[in-house]
């Protein structure tokens, strides 16, 4: 599905990622963990094609094609979905219209017939149940005046409608209380499929209580310093990121 080889990424000439290697196979869930400023979100954004995040070295293959050469909208149409850490507000544009336009852009690209408003509404209602989303939100402007939890639910709802092949969820757990976290996690779990891969970017281990990953990677200072199974997350929870920081050599251990 996704193969990242020695990826270096700079923002405004400053290198943030210093050689990432990662292979995600179909059906797998990978968690990328790390403290603030370690480069987690940068990795998520560069995969989605955000302007200003410049790959300077390395390669990313997505189902065998060179991902970094593709326009952001084409990546989306080919099945890459980014769940935003901070979902963006678009005043005056209804959630329904936005998502229908998105879905139809993707369908058209893939040679499928576009859905009309009625068919779309049926589909949307079915998917809303998945994240227990208030039906009223579909007619409101995109993310405008949504609470933090509503915004995150809306992201997972969009993912459910767009049915991506590869979903990258950037801190989808942040700002959620425990009930909302559980609902969002249930939604994601319901979307697990053998041909769909999910990359969870998260700061905390708690999301992983609900969405159990196949692999966990720890990102520190722009490098993956440790990879392992789901137990790695628990170990991190116990020992903190400092446990790994000492071993990377990128920062001197603090001597007291």
């Amino acid at each position: 599905m996704l193969e990242i080889r020695d990826l270096h990424v700079s923002i405004d000439g400053k290198e943030i990622l210093h050689g990432i290697n990662l292979v995600v196979n179909p059906g797998e869930i990978h968690a990328i963990m790390g403290p603030n400023g370690s480069g987690k979100s940068t990795l998520a954004k560069v995969l989605a094609g955000r302007e200003g995040y410049t790959p300077t070295r390395g390669k990313v293959l997505y189902n065998g094609t060179d991902l970094l050469q593709m326009l952001p909208e084409d990546r989306a149409r080919e099945g890459i979905f980014l769940g935003f850490q901070y979902p963006v507000e678009i005043p005056g544009v209804s959630n329904m219209y936005f998502l229908k336009t998105a879905l139809n852009s993707i369908r058209k690209h893939n040679g499928l017939e576009e859905l009309d408003a009625m068919d779309f509404l049926v589909l949307a209602k079915e998917k809303m149940k998945l994240v227990d989303m208030d039906e009223g939100l579909i007619n409101r402007a995109v993310n405008e005046g949504f609470s933090g939890g509503e915004k995150k639910r809306n992201e997972v709802f969009q993912m459910a409608v767009l049915e991506p092949k590869l979903a990258i969820l950037d801190e989808t757990d942040s700002g959620l209380d425990i009930d909302a976290l559980r609902t969002v996690a249930d939604g994601v779990n319901a979307l697990r499929r053998p041909d769909r891969s999910i990359v969870l970017v998260t700061h905390y281990q708690r999301l992983l209580n609900y969405i159990v990953p196949d692999k966990v990677h720890v990102l520190l200072d722009g490098r993956i310093v440790k990879s392992g199974g789901k137990e790695l997350a628990l170990e991190l929870e116990e020992k903190g990121y400092a446990w790994l920081e000492n071993g990377t050599g990128s920062k001197p251990a603090v001597m007291s």
Partner: peptide, 15 residues
């Protein structure tokens, strides 16, 4: 904003 545009693009909508 670039943020709004990117959000739309990321959902498959051309600029």
């Amino acid at each position: 904003g670039e943020d709004q545009l990117f959000y739309c693009q990321q959902r498959g909508i051309a600029p």
